[in-house]
Design a protein around this nucleic acid. Structure first.
Length: 569
RNA sequence: CGGAAUGUAGCUCAGCCUGGUAGAGUACUACGUUCGGGACGUAGGGGCCAAGGGUUCGAAUCCCUUCAUUCCGACCA
């Protein structure tokens, strides 16, 4: 490709709307252009990177016996009614009517479609197991897209679905797929992606893992134990909160005028936050008000809590709190008319301070086992840095990550609701057991940029680079530069090397700056100075590696360099 | 869906408070001088000042409404 023909304008300045490094470089380097909120066009450099990523994933999916298929992006309502998701998924699902007024939707994921396909094709246990995958556009009408390609509404996803006759078979395949994922991320140049336990969310199913690229710019919170190398999504992570055993003292009222918050209690009593019981009220979408108690230094994990109560939660209003018998600012879980959930951190602690349900008063020496013996003891704590790892006793830290992929054990969630059955060895009908496995291609592309860049632009790993080699012809108006650059460009293409040829007659500074933004690993500089000695200069992007190569050896040098570099991936 | 900010040239922004012919830098075109890390000079082209309504002799500027974008939350396969 010649730079003079390439439609991919470069910008010197940081675009006003971009904050994230990858977003900035993808816009500045002429990779992507926004068309609407969370909807992007890809220009040729990004399209080529995407193609390389897709090729790597295809190879790894094929190695674990995947068969590539393609399902439609527009699906009829009936299919999603079968699974129940037409009603259970809200505005994130984009619905519309066709000319016959038939309800249609833009697929945000393809479990329904793949089950509809598979159930017409197989009927015997002899047909199992199998895995089908595709690269297909998804549309998710996100409340808030952001960060360039990291979080968009329309994107291409590799989604794979496996079908099994036994749980053991799924478990085995799941592990194989997990391995394939690590290989994929390594080949894409980001081997540091870690797999972590996660919440299965609306997908249903019991076991799920996320593949997180740990980086400060990530939007997910990941709890890490560096001692035992365990990772968990902050939504499901658990810590241990141990308190020193004490003798239970008498539950008694103390006067605390105008002391309402935990902070005020700390300065009023001189005791640490860990000696307080924090009492919080939520109202569910069904209108029930519930009371939850956590230790004063801990935040309520609303994700865990929603799963326990099986409802969506919002903070209760003062009126709703009063109805339960509690007094806002001086609330105590004892003697209320509503359901009460107590976190382990409080259940295991002794002699805490809590409210008295009386304006201006608190209670001291609150002990759950004695004062609230019938409360539900649950895990609803939000893990924070410094908490104790439940596996090894090490210290937990919170890091940020970008979720570049995920895998789920779906079980029979979809095969049952959509009545996909097979006949087993004994002639009995059974539901197949499913797994599903996703990778967001654009997000992966952006993630690579997020961790493989310098101040001047992305540093694409050779395995995904838009081109393998860039030729910068400095002073194209000079005869020997023009001729040599054209010859090298031609010769490299002849042997199958991917080349971007900057044939524009611009100053070297402009060419180099643009080349940095394009991030191609190997740069050849054809310029008068070295040509006088019969040499071409090379430079490796992102390193100090450079040197001079005789003109007639340049093709073999490039081929050898590529072969050697590719060994890393 | 809440809170905040911003919409002026392809891009980054000034002008708005205090109403009076639309600006700069960059990018683009032509010519000349430059030429190994975003050169310089001269001359050009490029705008429904987000949209709609109002106030006014007159609105980019003041008022109202809508829309869009970004940030912080809520939500999120």
């Amino acid at each position: 490709m010649r730079s003079s023909r390439l439609v991919s304008r470069k910008h010197k300045e940081k675009p006003a709307e971009a904050q994230l490094t990858s977003h900035i470089f993808l816009l500045r380097g002429g990779y992507v252009r926004p068309l609407a909120n969370g909807i992007y066009s890809l220009l040729m450099p990004a399209k080529r990177i995407q193609q390389k990523i897709i090729h790597i994933i295809q190879e790894e999916m094929d190695k674990i016996d995947g068969q590539e298929i393609q399902m439609p992006i527009v699906l009829p309502r009936e299919l999603w009614q079968e699974s129940g998701r037409w009603d259970s998924v809200e505005s994130e699902l984009l619905r519309f009517k066709d000319r016959a007024s038939h309800d249609m939707l833009l697929a945000m994921t393809h479990e329904e479609a793949v089950v509809a396909l598979a159930r017409t094709e197989v009927s015997s246990y002899k047909d199992f197991p199998f895995m089908m995958y595709q690269f297909q556009t998804k549309f998710r009408d996100e409340a808030r897209s952001r960060g360039g390609l990291v979080r968009v509404r329309e994107f291409i996803m590799k989604d794979a679905y496996s079908f099994h006759t036994t749980q053991d078979d799924l478990d085995n395949y799941y592990d194989k797929c997990a391995q394939a994922y690590h290989t994929i991320f390594k080949r894409c140049g980001i081997p540091e992606v870690v797999s972590i336990q996660s919440d299965s969310g609306m997908m249903g199913g019991k076991v799920a893992h996320e593949y997180q690229l740990l980086t400060d710019s990530g939007e997910d919170k990941v709890v890490v134990c560096e001692k035992c190398n365990t990772y968990a999504n902050a939504e499901v992570a658990t810590g241990i909160y141990q308190s020193q055993p004490e003798e239970m003292l008498d539950f008694e009222q103390i006067e605390t005028p105008n002391v309402r918050t935990i902070d005020e209690l700390v300065s009023f009593t001189g005791l640490p936050e860990e000696k307080m019981a924090k009492t919080v009220f939520y109202t569910t979408d069904k209108g029930e008000t519930i009371c939850v108690v956590v230790r004063g230094d801990i935040e309520v994990n609303e994700c865990k809590l929603q799963k326990i109560v099986q409802a969506t939660l919002a903070f209760a209003t003062d009126e709703e709190v009063l109805k339960t018998g509690a007094v806002p600012g001086f609330a105590c879980a004892v003697g209320l008319t509503c359901r009460v959930f107590v976190d382990y951190s409080v259940a295991k602690a002794y002699n805490l301070i809590c409210g008295a349900n009386k304006e201006g008063y608190h209670m001291k020496n609150f002990n759950v086992s004695r004062d609230l013996p019938h409360a539900d003891i649950v895990d609803i704590a939000t893990v924070k840095t410094g908490d104790i790892c439940p596996k090894c006793g090490g210290e937990l830290t919170i890091k940020r990550g970008i979720e570049v992929g995920n895998i789920f054990k779906l079980g029979t969630r979809y095969t049952e609701s959509m009545r996909m059955v097979f006949t087993d060895e004994n002639g009995k009908d059974k539901y197949p057991i499913m797994g599903c496995y996703g990778i967001g291609i654009g997000r992966l592309l952006a993630s690579i940029c997020e961790v493989r860049h310098d101040d001047y632009g992305p540093i694409w790993p050779l395995s995904v680079a838009p081109w393998q080699v860039q030729i910068c012809a400095v002073k194209m108006d000079k005869q020997n530069v023009f001729e040599t650059a054209e010859t090298v460009y031609h010769d490299l293409q002849q042997v199958g090397v991917e080349v971007l040829f900057d044939d524009r007659n611009l100053s070297a500074g402009v060419q180099f700056a643009d080349a940095d933004l394009t991030g191609i690993p190997l740069r050849l500089i054809v310029a008068p100075r070295a040509l006088e000695q019969g040499m071409i200069e090379y430079k490796v992007r992102g390193t100090n590696e450079n040197g001079l190569i005789p003109i007639d050896e340049i093709v073999s040098f490039v081929q050898n360099w590529i072969t050697k570099e590719m060994e890393k991936y």
